[in-house]
Design a protein around this nucleic acid. Structure first.
Length: 224
DNA sequence: AACGCTATCAACCGCTCTCGC
DNA sequence: AGCGAGAGCGGTTGATAGCGT
């Protein structure tokens, strides 16, 4: 006789406020990670993935809710042009926004043919986007990533970090990190995969020659 | 008021990646 | 080197709110 392991029925669907409270308390007490055991230890009958998603997208601190600002829209458009559907990376550039939110926003507001909430300036921009292929495609990037040496990677990263400090991105105070570097958020470890030079050049292409930053040899001025 | 259509967004699913053994 | 578990990502689905007729 084969003994089948009986898995507890996991709950699905929308989260109730009570469940949110339990998960929030649990994570604040025990920290993030080990999501598989969260459902057992917290008493939530939810899968680890579900708990992780709920925490990441709705419960963790500094989540920014509400409408996207014009600058955020603009940034999403530019980054999508550059990176394609790499929502986590794009969200990493938008303080307080999650990959899911960015993805949803793109699919409902910005995707080709959807122009409902695009303002006049963005409409022009959107016309350049249809059928957009990322300048650095996902697969290409993956290949690139696996090649460059660690030293080179650190070099590129530090260059990028240095550049981002000069960005002047309008973010409400609660969402600004203490060091005043607007983009230093918890997704920051992802940043090594940005080749700063490629990014820089790509943005210049998007903006057109006339917008080529003046301080080419020094720190980049605001690129978007 | 009732119905149908559309837009929005929360959540799930399947896959890949990473890390420890 | 190979394997398994956990984590993360992007695509997709389903519920529902909002709007027009």
């Amino acid at each position: 006789m084969e003994m089948k392991e009986v898995k507890p029925q996991l709950k699905k669907g929308l989260w109730k406020p009570e469940e949110d409270r339990i998960l929030k308390n649990y994570v604040e007490t025990h920290g993030e990670g080990n999501w598989a055991s969260v459902s057992q230890k917290s008493g939530l009958m939810r899968g680890g993935k579900s708990c992780r998603l709920r925490w990441k997208n709705y419960l963790r601190p500094n989540i920014k809710r509400g409408r996207m600002s014009d600058e955020e829209k603009d940034l999403i458009i530019r980054l999508h042009k550059l990176l394609g559907n790499r929502w986590a990376l794009i969200a990493g550039r938008l303080p307080g926004r999650t990959d899911n939110e960015v993805k949803n926003y793109w699919n409902t507001h910005l995707k080709q043919g959807k122009t409902t909430t695009i303002g006049p300036t963005n409409k022009n921009e959107l016309q350049q986007i249809p059928n957009s292929q990322p300048i650095c495609s996902s697969s290409e990037n993956n290949n690139e990533e696996s090649h460059g040496g660690k030293e080179e990677e650190l070099k590129v990263r530090s260059l990028w970090m240095e550049d981002t400090k000069s960005f002047n991105f309008d973010v409400e105070p609660p969402f600004l990190p203490a060091n005043n570097a607007p983009f230093f958020y918890d997704d920051e470890p992802l940043m090594p995969i940005f080749d700063s030079l490629a990014l820089y050049e790509a943005l210049c292409q998007i903006n057109g020659e006339e917008n080529y930053p003046q301080e080419v040899s020094g720190h980049a001025t605001r690129l978007w």
